[in-house]
Amino acid sequence: MTGMQVIFLINALVSVLAGIMLATSRKLIHAGLWLILTLFGVAIMFGLLEASFLAIVQGVVYIGAIAILIIFAIMLTRETMEESHGKRTRWILTSIVALITLAGILLALLTWPQSSSLTLPLSEEQQSIAELGLALVDPERYLVPFEVASLLLLAALVGAVYVAVERKGEEK
């Protein structure tokens, strides 16, 4: 059992436990904190897959921005914080469906021959961020998705500000 495997197992255990606590927590703000722990676990997974840039970007974007935004929204909508555990049947039915889906995915996984392949070492230039940057601005490679993504962000920015601005006199 190598060190990387130990780290993977500990990380997977903590992330899945945090996910389960997230799914079953009563208070919304505690769920926000469990979400942050789960996202942190995902970032460590990215690090284990030798994508350090993506791991840190996950930390910046998800934990440093999206999670804080979610906590802000939780605080701004305060009256409905206590989530009542209504409809037990719905929970049980959904958990059965989720477990069946999970079992199906695992079955498909185990009958796939390449599922136990191990990693091949990466060459040096594939690990550099400069390669990533070059790929993003190369017209024959990924320039168009890059520009479309920036347009998407601009549209989201304008839309979110417009929707969330409280206009005077329109409340009643």
Partner: peptide, 23 residues
Amino acid sequence: NVGVLYILAVGGLGELGIILAGF
């Protein structure tokens, strides 16, 4: 090799502490 981004990520964690304190 991404030390500069790490500084930004850790700054986000600090803000989280402040909003939790306030709330």
